[in-house]
Amino acid sequence: MHRAKVRVAEDVLDANATIARANREDFDRENVAVVNLMSAPGAGKTSLLERAVEQPGGVRVGVLEGDVQGSLDADRLAALHTPVTQINTDPGFGGECHLDANMVRAAIPALPLAEVDLLVIENVGNLVCPAEFRVGEDARVMVSAVTEGEDKPLKYPLMFRTCELVLVNKIDLLPHLDFDLDRFLANLEAINPGVDYLLVSARSGEGTNAWREWLGALPDRLAAGARR
């Protein structure tokens, strides 16, 4: 039997990157800024979106909800009169633990891109896999709740390294926890020096104005960056 060595030299995630670029081109054509919102399950992604989708400045926000199953999160956001599109990952390999570029690609025809300025893609709750798969986003935001402990940047460096903004959520619980905020911020600084972060509580609303403003200003920030 003939044996041969075949040179490949291809990045394992090249196929995903190619589709992510195609998604990005579609979003750019419609002038839509895209955020990939990631966190562990239960960190507060949907609650923080509920605090930020209604933009006083008139920026129109749409949401693409990724979940392994069901539409619980999408239903919550739809109640706020926000355009929400749901994708479930369960037809994949037993329910994928992340969104990849292809899943987002399949959802694009269902997205009301002409009616929004900003699309937030709420990823599946998971601190590992979503960090590997770009989906065509302009910015990556992650939520880390203080209940998760201050060591998380050290344990999940890939996720903490790839995001532009970290929302430190559930700070209303700080008086009841042993969480050392200074230590968390030092760990974050070690993994992603100079990264922006906001201290927020989706429950009390503390800090969520700054989050809403950060999100609302993103389309203009990106446009200014593109002109430069």
Partner: peptide, 8 residues
């Protein structure tokens, strides 16, 4: 990166 594969 998949650098190479060996086929038979």
């Amino acid at each position: 990166e998949v650098e190479s594969i060996e086929v038979g």
